[in-house]
Amino acid sequence: MTIHYPKGAASPLHFPKQLPKKQGPVLRKAPTNFANRGMNLEEAINDSNAYYLAKNLAVVHKKPTPLQIVKVDYPKRSAAVIREAYFSQASTTDYNGVFNGYYLDFEAKETKNKTSFPLKNFHQHQIDHFKNCLAQKGICFVLLYFSTLNRCFYLAAEDLIVFWDQQVSGKKSIPLQTIETLATELPEKIAPRIPYLSVIEKMIAQKEAFHE
């Protein structure tokens, strides 16, 4: 069997005929540091949700995107291939679920900007959805990820709505310095990778203490 590899790539099946002689002590390679490599935001959130579910802490899922299928081909009887489809309606937010009796609803967005987060990443129907959920006393928020800086923040939907409503006559983005003040930074961890429940737990504890 012949195995072809991309041009310039070495075959993993190739071995040198003669091993080079040792010259001096062997230097050990330092462990790779992944801290500043950035992350795939959706993957990190999904991993976090799976962790919370496995630990019976919360049930949170990514919402399916509603699609209207237009054309389907059947190359085989047991298989179907979608050739054409379109969004049947505007999506609301990315994730929803329940935690300790509280309804959760949130959106995840990212930007390559280093100094501000553009409000154009959001849409009016998402803001309206947040307002409706907040009216029913749901816990709503956004996860803002600065991919170039590898920094993720938890920002309450109430604060996002204020900036959204002011953008007509004001700024079209939220400065990073403002986010650092209003939001809570979530450094990436191992399990969960994005510990957003820690912010919600503190918020609920403060509310319950206030009403006692």
Rank of each mutant, 00 (worst) to 15 (best):
T2N: 06
T2M: 07
I3H: 11
H4F: 06
Y5P: 00
P6V: 00
K7N: 04
G8P: 14
A10P: 04
P12L: 06
F15I: 01
L19K: 14
P20N: 11
P20L: 11
Q23W: 04
G24V: 00
P25S: 12
V26A: 06
K29W: 13
A30P: 02
A30N: 06
P31D: 03
T32S: 04
F34V: 12
A35L: 12
A35D: 04
A35G: 07
A35E: 09
N36P: 07
G38L: 08
G38H: 03
G38Y: 09
G38Q: 07
M39A: 06
M39H: 08
N40M: 05
E43I: 05
E43Q: 14
A44K: 09
A44F: 07
D47A: 06
N49V: 07
A50T: 04
Y51V: 05
Y52P: 02
L53H: 11
L53Q: 01
A54F: 05
K55P: 03
A58Y: 02
V59D: 10
V60A: 04
V60W: 05
H61E: 10
K63R: 10
P66C: 03
L67D: 04
Q68P: 01
Q68E: 08
V70M: 13
Y74K: 11
P75K: 15
K76V: 02
R77Y: 11
A80N: 07
I82F: 03
I82G: 03
E84D: 15
F87G: 00
F87M: 06
A90C: 10
S91C: 14
T92G: 03
T93F: 10
N96I: 01
F99S: 00
G101K: 15
G101C: 11
G101T: 03
Y103V: 04
D105R: 05
E107M: 07
T111A: 05
K112G: 02
N113Y: 11
K114H: 10
K114A: 11
K114W: 14
K120A: 14
D128N: 15
H129V: 00
F130C: 00
K131F: 06
K131G: 00
A135P: 15
A135F: 14
G138Q: 15
I139R: 12
I139S: 07
C140P: 01
F141H: 09
V142K: 00
L144G: 06
Y145F: 09
S147M: 03
L149I: 00
N150R: 00
N150W: 11
N150Y: 09
N150L: 09
R151Y: 10
F153L: 13
F153Q: 15
L155D: 04
L155S: 07
A156K: 13
A157Y: 03
E158L: 13
E158G: 11
D159P: 07
L160K: 02
F163D: 02
W164D: 01
Q166P: 04
V168N: 15
V168Y: 12
S169F: 05
S169T: 08
G170Y: 00
G170Q: 03
G170S: 08
K171E: 01
K172Q: 09
I174A: 12
P175V: 08
T178Q: 14
L182W: 09
E185T: 10
E185W: 05
E185S: 15
L186W: 06
L186K: 07
P187A: 12
K189T: 13
K189E: 13
K189A: 15
K189Q: 14
I190K: 14
I190P: 02
A191S: 15
P192Y: 13
P192M: 09
R193T: 08
P195V: 11
Y196C: 00
Q206P: 01
K207G: 00
F210W: 06
H211W: 15
